[in-house]
Design a protein around this nucleic acid. Structure first.
Lengths: 219, 219
DNA sequence: TCTAATTTTTAGACTAACCTAAAAATAATT
DNA sequence: AATTATTTTTAGGTTAGTCTAAAAATTAGA
């Protein structure tokens, strides 16, 4: 059984691996986990001994099949707990992360599978991120950043990139939530802000906002 | 915020304190937590520095008000989680303990209070033990051991003393559960076994069994 | 390509929570 | 009350996970 710390390292490497094909650098992991590079080196050696990562000095790390499966399972737990908190316990989507960070390390196969059933086998967490299955398979649905959608195009919100409370509460205020359809009315060349329409509401969002909302293009 | 270990010590001292008025001995705590007396001494000093226990060398420890409240809160969480597992996640009452031992250390006031509401503010856990309120108040209901009930008396099962899987599964097999009414038909002076009747079922139970079932005397 | 900047690793140290073995205090027994 | 037995504490050590500072390797720039 892995420690909380080991699980967090695997999870961090898993997330970072989605963004690149190369080995994940010590520094990148340190930044992700808010720790020091020297601590990462230590831990990565241990994970390598356990055959959960491939590690070559100075060349970064990659997850092995075994490590990847464990990481996906931690993420599965994290996201299922998030669904429970939002659907059953009246948590807002900006309140779930911290608690889910704790809950993801609870060890009980039965608990997580019963919870999955209890929730009706959800496919996505409250931020639109896919929930891995028991084997660790993940459905990375194709999605685009709202900032890449052209004028007069329609798109449906399917996820968020930033999951900070500030951002999520901003989205709530604007009526932007998963499944909400929006139309891009115009784009301002100067600052890349865009005017969008949701239902009968029209308003302007900055590029920074549009860069953190995932949508599915509806043409 | 206290560590898992500190919380477990407080909980152990709380439970042991129910059985005696005196200070709790180092050895008793060590036994309860399956650890060594020297480790207990270390931890008890730390808890004393934090003013969670009163500790006088060689004289044992007692919880302070502050320590008692924290202990009761850990127990509250443990028992509420047990209710959730049994009522919503199809856990049997002999399966909940191990997972609840992990879950009781999750820190989130909102989570536990929402869960309490979600479960309809239960008063007892699946073994009949009372659930402390938010302030740490506990309702120790009066209860007797089944072994003390006289012949021809009726009693309702309100709890169990032993919570091992073996014992709980035995009770399941015999149809003994919380709220079940039973009549004591006869007592065997030789080995203190007793013949009891549940609904229309009559059978014999050993003294050891009767010593681990709490009942409310119905006369 | 050679030097400078950056990244990564090593070496050594710290804390929390545990341990063993020995010493000290308390309790029990004659 | 004196001795023995038991309990508790102290002293010193271990492991996991972290840290700082210095050394080594890699990458970037002139």
């Amino acid at each position: 059984m892995l420690s909380k710390s080991e699980e967090n390292y695997l999870k961090a490497i898993f997330h970072l691996s989605r963004k690149t094909e190369k080995g994940i650098s010590t520094n990148a992991i340190a930044q992700q986990l808010d720790t020091k590079a020297s601590s990462v080196t230590d831990m990565v050696k241990k994970l390598s001994d356990k055959e959960l990562v491939l590690y070559v000095k100075y060349q970064g790390v990659t997850l092995t099949k075994k490590g990847e499966k464990i990481a996906a399972n931690v993420i599965r737990k994290h996201r299922l707990w998030e669904v429970l908190l939002v659907e059953k316990f009246n948590f807002n989507w900006d309140e779930v992360h911290e608690v889910a960070e704790q809950l993801e390390h609870i060890h009980s196969k039965k608990l997580i599978n019963e919870m999955d059933a209890f929730l009706g086998y959800p496919k996505h967490d409250p931020h639109g991120d896919p929930i891995p299955d028991e084997e660790g398979n993940i459905n990375f649905l194709e999605k685009s950043l709202l900032s890449t959608i052209g004028v007069n195009m329609k798109a449906v919100c399917v996820g968020v990139k930033d999951t900070s409370s500030d951002f999520l509460r901003y989205l709530d205020k604007q009526g932007i939530a998963l499944g909400v359809e929006m139309t891009v009315l115009e784009k301002e060349a100067f600052d890349n802000s865009m005017r969008i329409k949701i239902a009968s509401n029209e308003f302007t969002i900055s590029q920074q906002i549009a860069n953190n909302i995932y949508v599915k293009n509806k043409g």
